[in-house]
Design a protein around this nucleic acid. Structure first.
Lengths: 366, 366
DNA sequence: AGGAACGTTGACAGCGCTACCAGCAACGAC
DNA sequence: GTCGTTGCTGGTAGCGCTGTCAACGTTCCT
């Protein structure tokens, strides 16, 4: 125990090397590429490190090696539970390997994103995960000049910076509307909040599907820049209903809004789905247990974060994926809130969301 | 533009110093303590740095100064929206100053927490935010030996490691039960999931309040170690009801469970609050817009994170707070789901959560 | 006027680690 | 036996910045 130490009392690599009877550089190699050592030295260094409780100094390592083991993650919001699932996936994937996550919140501002990007890049991150495909031209240039792997998440589009993983919000919205058509609905409203690029693309998908069917009217669309909430869903739906009393369905840009619409229907004693059908987006957990159960478009958020981080780490370690763009698709989960019109709609006595019909669709780009 | 640079093309402090016509150390001081420079040099360095687009190398700074500008945050879950509010508060507070947040997820395991703590501490963080007061003895010892400020968040208790900010879950639960008593309820059930230390203390508060009234029975309590969800709320409530058919109220350990209970009541056509009253915990946004609106115990999650990070940063900068333990209290937000028995309970035509009566209580410790 | 006190600046050394390259032993091919 | 090759190891020289301390010029006091 009474070994030589630096004044701060911390154990350095040199102490480990001394105890193991090797040079510092050999000890260093043990932590980065153990295979390069002979088995004898490997075990010697290993036990020496363990005995001393050695923990590498990351700052020194970063300075000497000219690169960090930090993965930068830029997301637009910490509140939105869509992102908490993605984040969980990212953190889970980063566990057990040497990379650590550095998270920053762009607050849905691409200017803020650009600023943060500049900060991140200056510290030479090992890799970068950015949200979406709508960067400023300046950000785009920085990303392309960056000498680290980059994954864009949440959506897919043409012209990836590097890797990309997500799905087509446009196609997903079209599928949701198509489902409502199938159920016999025609006057389908759209309720959206926050209107970030992805919500905008869902709106675009809705508009195109409605136009294709010759059913589009501008007054069927209610949106706001306000952040989304359940209460807001009710308020927006009230607006929509005032404007368009013979609405027969609502497609909500997310599940919080959908829940708000459901509550507002209950408040107004509007039968769901007999009078109004509801479809949400994301398929949060509560959708399956609402009464009536709520139809939604399931998106693979955890998997998106997890795969993004996994792909990124692989790429950092030199194993680039064969397929740099990954479409995780979506599923329209059909539940009671969008059952065919005039059907039996009394909720089942118990047991939420029994026998959901699922329609899986790979999202094609167009 | 064609200035001398390091081989990597990055601008170092030395380049800035050269352009400004000062020594590197003077330039260095500019970034850490500008007041120490004469105004002339200050402006010279400032414009030189701007012209060259200099960004300090954090790794070199950390190595040379023997400390990082990283605040470590240990939270038990990324999914639970309680923590996303806290996190938002932390990240907001860390913005605009030089500290960056390093987040890690303990997954509700104090052993995992201990492991992460060891990792964090080895990198000499500038400060630490940890969740709760139930650390392992080993963790506790490490925290006490750490030479950086530490804030424990989410709850308060005796014997803080350093600073502490939260509220008494025990008192909050007692207040919720007291409210139900006031409304005339007697057979009050408890529904809890995950059963982390804070939920456990809520249960303790419930039990003590019930015992004080001579109303406690073990069969009124249903808990599980399973992570919480809306669906689970319905399932646990079903169990409780099977066991105890003449239940007249349910206190849920969180709002997701409460929403699940509400849906289950609707499914079973149990009138809320006439047959069963419901009280949740945390007062998430949707509680005010459910039908009927749901009573809950409001907790100041954003403020908790924000104040914790602010206090921590102040302490790092040498300004320790006068009051190291801060009780943020709670409020029972009374809504329709716990109106007095036999009252008019039809939901209002529109407008969620109008005229909530609020009862504010500072949580005293005991 | 002389000295102390202050504010400001710079030289030097080193934080703990790794990149680079040289060196050495062991081995197989000719 | 000599040569090249491979596998492993170590020496040297920084990475970019800051702590420490000494030195400088200026101001103020007696």
């Amino acid at each position: 125990m009474g070994r030589k130490r630096t004044k701060s009392g911390k154990i350095r690599l040199a102490e480990v090397a001394e105890l193991a009877g090797v040079s510092p550089i050999t000890a260093s190699r043990f932590f980065r590429n153990p295979e390069a050592l002979s088995v004898a030295k490997r075990t010697r260094v290993e036990s020496a490190a363990k005995e001393l409780g050695y923990v590498p100094n990351l700052a020194a390592r970063a300075l000497a090696s000219q690169r960090t083991e930090v993965i930068g993650v830029l997301i637009p919001s910490l509140t939105n539970n869509v992102f908490s699932d993605v984040l969980r996936g990212i953190y889970d994937a980063s566990e057990g390997n040497r990379y650590s996550i550095q998270l920053s919140n762009t607050r849905y501002s691409i200017l803020q994103e650009e600023k943060l990007l500049r900060l991140f890049l200056a510290q030479k991150p090992a890799g970068l995960i950015v949200t979406g495909i709508d960067q400023t031209t300046e950000s785009r240039a920085m990303l392309e000049a960056a000498d680290c792997p980059i994954v864009q998440i949440m959506e897919i589009g043409p012209d990836p910076v590097d890797m990309m993983i997500g799905f087509s919000h446009y196609d997903a919205a079209r599928a949701a509307v198509a489902h409502l058509f199938e159920q016999g609905h025609r006057r389908i409203g759209f309720v959206g909040a926050r209107m970030d690029p992805r919500v905008q693309r869902r709106l675009d998908g809705y508009v195109s599907a409605m136009k294709d069917a010759g059913l589009f009217e501008q007054r069927l669309v209610v949106t706001t820049a306000t952040p989304t909430s359940v209460t807001l869903g009710g308020a927006l739906f009230s607006d929509l209903l005032a404007r368009e009393p013979d609405l027969d369905a609502v497609f909500c840009a997310n599940d919080d809004l959908a829940l708000g619409v459901l509550f507002e229907c209950r408040r107004r004693e509007i039968a769901v789905p007999d009078q109004i059908a509801i479809v949400g987006f994301n398929d949060l957990e509560f959708m399956a247990s609402a009464v009536p159960t709520l139809t939604s478009v399931r998106t693979n958020r955890y998997e998106m974060g997890n795969t993004a981080a996994t792909m990124l780490i692989e790429a950092i370690d030199g194993r680039r994926p064969e397929q740099p763009v990954l479409d995780l698709g979506f599923k329209v989960i059909e539940r009671q809130s969008s059952s065919p019109r005039h059907s039996e709609s009394r909720p089942a006595a118990s047991g939420a969301g029994a026998a959901n019909k699922m329609v899986a669709l790979p999202s094609g780009h167009d």
